[in-house]
Design a protein around this nucleic acid. Structure first.
Lengths: 345, 345
DNA sequence: GCCCCTCGTGGAATCGATTCCAATCTTTCT
DNA sequence: AGAAAGATTGGAATCGATTCCACGAGGGGC
């Protein structure tokens, strides 16, 4: 493959001049410029990004470590991240942690070794020494969706609190009183927050959240199934299962169907994270939708700001409730309760 | 960030010796080795992959250019590719072409500029000059799923021919006679092959495939909706719609539902590509499942073989039919036709 | 006791770019 | 005309690794 020296020889100039033409430095004569351009075209020359990165100490690359590529929420996030990054002149390398801290570390290490300019992470756990060290060492970093408390890194995420309140209002209005949640791992912020938001919203309606109604999942479908089976085995099973992510909702659907029960007739189901497939499931699933694309774009903007020396700020965007049929139609016998809170626009 | 010189200074040896320890070259004394290891640990030194790549002309990185990250088929593929690559000591950089040839070119160029060791492509179109040139120039390359005829590059893909025959047998057995297909772009091999396999299978049952029953989609949901609306507007609409990928099937489902029609009561639906969500849609969708994970792994093995100078061979794996409820239950009035072919195991 | 061979080691070249600095050639102003 | 300023240009250093080559020390054989 042709190098800058070959181009220089072909154009009859020095490598320095070729480099200047390539980076359109002003101080090059028109004559030299055209000769270099001709040589570049003739040789099909492309600058070696590896060499360039070594010299300039910039890779124009962002690392994105997500918790699970098979989760449509994260692939949508990844897509918007890549899109915005491309628009800003950066490439993205995606690392899939599969919800495994060891894999997450593998990718963080790998990305750091490649000297990426900045790191976008949705941490799988409370933060490995490696990640904390990277943050501390000044690697430009931004958390998306999930974050690690106590680390001084901007966070771009959605706040589902209001939407969860809307959901509980909706469920309460439908007459449901025994509500259960399939939570995420305690090591993740989203795993904790969603339970807390749910518990708080229930309290506003005078409802409690007994321990038996809090299942611990891992954001994967299989755990949703397992937890739901536990719920159904209870002497008094819940009337509603709220899954803290879309995959666990899928698992819950499996478990419910396996018992020959119907949604929402026998039990209602709601999920955090709205994915396009929820429109087509049987029944369509009521879900809390995050502004995923906007989160990805904002995260990239915050990260590139940091990289380029500008201050990259945290951002929290509201999620919103999308009502479908999985929680049932309002029973006509029971009059709807007075509205306690307005639904978000 | 500490460099090899810092380690050398700390250990009181030369950079050459440090390098030898790092690459566990045999000719290093035990004493020097332990001193270097101590220095590495003390400084938290990590070799700079950029510098290493420049020198060795190897990046230990594979490029994967897929047609659409939002398509679960491709994300599953990407996942298995990354898994196998990791097991073999390679990293993967994913480029999402979004079914757009210009974006595909952008990613191919970018990956080539980064001097990736090899390229895995599922081409969006018939092949840009850039890609043909790369293949011709000897860049180790393997096509997955889709390929470009006439280019001397190994192809790892699934053969759906037998499964499509099984599907048609299934549909014919259910009494359906007017079968339509939503095809993919004519520029892709899978876009063409699936139609041909379908047409051939129909012929075996004495059925034709009129032009009006062949819609041209682009593997995205929206096109599936559009094409299906066209089908439903026909004076004699088809009894079955077979979508050549899972997203177009989703679009078809939208279009059908928008008219207030039921699947399979009013019209049957089948899809190429099985995705986990098809189990949960209303109704569950009959689909042709590819051995996606195995395809990804085999493609990586073929590519790394090429990279390492071994011969990487093409591979074609069979797809298989997964019957669910979207095509209807066998009408008891009509006796089932004699079996023409056995279903695959 | 001397020679040769092996082992361990460091110096220096190298990969392909960028960029500082000095040198040359113009041009302009007094 | 001479000097100063400005425009172009190339040589050489540099980024952080790897690896060839040469050198010195030590061990074994005769």
């Amino acid at each position: 493959m042709a190098s800058i020296k070959d181009v220089a020889a072909e154009a009859g100039v020095s490598a320095a001049t070729v480099s200047r033409v390539l980076n359109d430095h002003p101080s090059v004569s028109a004559h030299a410029r055209t000769r270099v351009q001709a040589a570049v075209a003739a040789l099909g020359y492309r600058p070696n990004a590896v060499a360039r990165s070594l010299r300039t100490d910039q890779t124009h690359t962002l690392g994105l470590v997500i918790s699970d590529v098979l989760n449509p929420y994260f692939t949508e996030l990844a897509r918007s991240v890549e899109e915005e990054a491309r628009a800003l002149g950066y490439s993205v390398i995606i690392g899939n942690a599969d919800e495994r801290p060891d894999l997450q570390d593998h990718h963080v290490r790998n990305l750091l070794d490649r000297r990426i300019d900045g790191l976008l992470v949705s941490p799988t756990d409370g933060g490995s020494p490696l990640m904390l060290e990277a943050a501390h060492a000044g690697t430009p970093m931004v958390f998306v969706d999930r974050w690690i408390p106590g680390v001084d890194v901007p966070v771009v995420r959605a706040d589902g609190r209001a939407a969860v309140r809307d959901l509980v209002e909706h469920l309460h209005g439908l007459g449901h009183r025994r509500l259960a949640i399939i939570a995420g791992p305690a090591a993740t912020t989203t795993g904790l927050e969603r339970v807390e938001a749910f518990r708080e919203a229930l309290r506003a309606y005078g409802l409690g959240l007994p321990d038996a109604y809090v299942g611990r999942g891992d954001f994967q479908a299989e755990s949703g199934r397992r937890v739901t089976e536990g719920f159904l085995d209870l002497p008094e099973p819940p009337q509603v299962v709220f899954a803290a992510d879309n995959l666990m909702a899928l698992g819950a659907l499996d478990a419910i169907r396996a018992r020959g029960m119907r949604v929402p007739g026998d039990i209602a189901l709601a999920a955090f994270d709205d994915v396009r497939w929820f429109v087509h499931t049987d029944p369509p699933v009521t879900a809390i939708a995050q502004p995923t694309g906007e989160l990805g774009r904002a995260a990239v903007r915050a990260l590139t700001a940091r990289i380029e020396g500008r201050p990259g700020a945290s951002l929290t965007l509201p999620a919103r409730l999308v009502v479908r049929r999985s929680c049932g139609a309002p029973p006509s016998a029971v009059p709807p309760p007075p509205p306690v809170r307005r639904r978000m626009p």
